[in-house]
Design a protein around this nucleic acid. Sequence first.
DNA 1: ATCGGTGCAAATGATTTGCATAAGT
DNA 2: ACTTATGCAAATCATTTGCACCGAT
Lengths: 138, 138
Amino acid sequence: MSCMVMFKEKGLKLTPQRRLIVNAIHGTEAHLTAEEIIGYVQTRMPGVNKSTVYRTLQLLEEAGCVYKSELGDQSIYHHAEEGHHHHLVCSRCGRTVDCAEDVFLPIERAVRDKYGFQAGFKHMVMSGLCKECRGKAG
Amino acid sequence: MSCMVMFKEKGLKLTPQRRLIVNAIHGTEAHLTAEEIIGYVQTRMPGVNKSTVYRTLQLLEEAGCVYKSELGDQSIYHHAEEGHHHHLVCSRCGRTVDCAEDVFLPIERAVRDKYGFQAGFKHMVMSGLCKECRGKAG
DNA sequence: ATCGGTGCAAATGATTTGCATAAGT
DNA sequence: ACTTATGCAAATCATTTGCACCGAT
């Protein structure tokens, strides 16, 4: 719950709305779209406005409590806990699989050695087919 | 110029507007935003409408002549020629460096072996710091 | 009292779409 | 001629912003 602490440390307020948003993100290992988070929050507290959610997500992202990634035309959000820094999202069933951080090390090294380019692979979201969907048609 | 041929093969028309759009994309190794392409086209042929450009880009992408990637909140476009399948975009100076395709092989293998996940790394755009900018402040 | 937070409504900005007209083949 | 393409204007859709009011410290 470092998010909660963060608010106070920055002199920001820990409102019920913000608590809900933090809960939504910490309550799952999945990636959530802004819309899904809005839905979660509004289910438990009708009347909460989209802009409140967007503003809070921005605060959380700036504080490093939440990762924001672009997938397709929307942004998806995920908490920034230790131990699982990348994600595999199945483009068929939507399942999310956590992925170890070190899988990017070879490419990071290769790109640095070959091109002198320091790539930043932070919380990457890769799309493809998960184990279950690989065999299936479609 | 397989794009040009593609139009005819599909019974589509090769208009001056489309020719310009194809030229814009094939005339550079850089990634172009829709806006940049619109600018290129309108400079040489004022009056061409955005929607024409967007519609053509969509056709080209569907035909596999052009790659579309999301970077930040906009889409960027690049021709689909052989030999350079990934791109490194410097987040500081905007420079684009072509990147060999094989740098993704290790990660593709690792993710498949570890998680049974078949990731699709097609025409990836990675952001980071290029050789020139790595030393500089900022 | 003061500063930050919220809801609301309107603004943005990229992309898409409906439609009447223009132009390739 | 016949079908596709284009320009224009309006519609979307996710996200952002201005503003007056509300609430916690």
